[in-house]
Design a protein around this nucleic acid. Structure first.
Lengths: 245, 245
DNA sequence: GGAGATTATTTTGCATTCATTTTTTGTCCT
DNA sequence: AGGACAAAAAATGAATGCAAAATAATCTCC
């Protein structure tokens, strides 16, 4: 076995599509986008080496632009560069995750605060729409749909903050925990799920009233609870499954 | 005039010292640290080109590690890379500054919240110490001393949050606005200064009581006010100087 | 047969080189 | 003289080359 990256059969460069509509002038930029996705999507196992040579062949480029992209990814915290030992996909410790969740909580909390200053009635209506949609998913026990809509709500709040810098940072941090974010949910934890729904009600309520500090608090607490659920899920994945009799 | 970087007489590489005690194994890492400082310190005027060739000579290296460092700095938001037209020191619009200040406010607000959970009595005592020191500077109208101590207080709060991820992000954003942060102060604005002192009293009070949400609010507002002062200062630098009669 | 040392291979880091693109300089024409 | 065009110079972006380090493979000796 010479390859450390499992061949998923999905090449980084899809022969047909170019990975979306976005276009990047420079090669290193293009590589950066693709490689970031590739890592965020979890195509390389945690802690595994990121072999330059192999990636160069996969991408059909030389090492120079690849290495530039790797440096940036390292700066973003997705991978880590060990001196003379190449790049590894960053392995997040439990503490790292806690920290990341808290920062996300802080950013969303901020987003909520700022959103109260600038959000339009139309935007609130749109979020209400998403909220009811999400409630539907909740009633139907549609985890996937729920999560999708839930994420759109949070993104809408961030968008309503009218702060590109914040949005960028938010997206950045979200990318780092994306892998666990999806796995670390309250899959079979009905109680937490119901709680989250109530929290979302409160979020919507505070948003309607443009109660900045209040919304800030609620959002922080909401994310904090998410964090707790996620960490618990990671440490004991078979939460609600009773032990063998 | 062939050089776009004004020769300040201070080389990036001081012949004697190596710029501090820190040591970096890789060259690109070393370059990154030095170049980041070099840009943050304001050695290159805003919007000016960052000539690779010249910097390579200054640093005595080839373009490869330099370009890697430039990509990272671009990712950090300190410079921007124009396709085929090289790197420029990022010029911050007023909107950019507003956004940055708000994000900083959010991060400090978060730091305060988290600090309430983890801060020790000793740490609070230390901050109190700094507070009184700062008050002394205030009474003596010692702007420089005030700012220095003020910054140490804010850093102490961030440190008390026990979140390295947050701290890194905070440092990062602080670097971006460092240039204006120092110039954009309430130089001759006694009123704002007094207000800031009162806010700091409130911060300390909330911290003593470990009132998380409250502290979060106060810190956000405090930074918000700073932002307003800074923007005002930039748009009309001769604030308190009465217009010609 | 296996643990440790030694050599070979691979990989990394940086310098150098090459092809384009941009910018500057020079010239010509109105 | 001034502007437009063209050629030269310089700078950028990416590929290649080379030395050092790390990893893998082989060999030696017990």
């Amino acid at each position: 076995m010479k390859s450390t990256i499992p061949d998923t059969g999905v090449p980084i460069t899809p022969p047909a599509a170019n990975g979306g509509d976005r276009q990047e002038a420079s090669l290193h930029g293009e590589i950066l986008l693709r490689l970031r996705d590739y890592v965020v999507e979890g195509n390389i196992p945690e802690g595994a080496r990121v072999p330059e040579r192999q990636l160069c062949e996969m991408l059909g480029i030389s090492r120079t632009p690849l290495r530039e992209a790797l440096k940036v990814l390292a700066a973003e915290g997705l991978i880590e560069l060990l001196p003379n030992r190449g790049a590894r996909v960053r392995q997040l410790s439990q503490r790292d995750l806690e920290e990341l969740f808290d920062v996300m909580a802080g950013l969303e909390s901020l987003a909520g605060r700022l959103a109260c200053e600038a959000i339009t009635d139309a935007e609130i209506t749109a979020i209400e729409q998403l909220h009811y949609e999400m409630y539907g998913h909740y009633l139907h026990r549609d985890m996937h749909g729920y999560f999708q809509t839930n994420q759109r709500i949070h993104e809408s709040i961030v968008a309503a903050a009218r702060n590109e810098t914040l949005k960028t940072a938010y997206t950045n941090f979200a990318g780092r925990i994306r892998r666990v974010r999806y796995s670390a949910n309250f899959a079979r934890k009905r109680q937490r799920w119901a709680e989250a729904m109530r929290e979302h009600e409160a979020i919507l309520d505070a948003l309607r009233r443009r109660a900045a500090s209040e919304l800030s608090d609620i959002l922080f607490q909401h994310l904090r609870n998410k964090r707790t659920a996620a960490i618990e899920h990671l440490t004991e994945p078979q939460e609600d499954t009773p032990a063998s009799p």
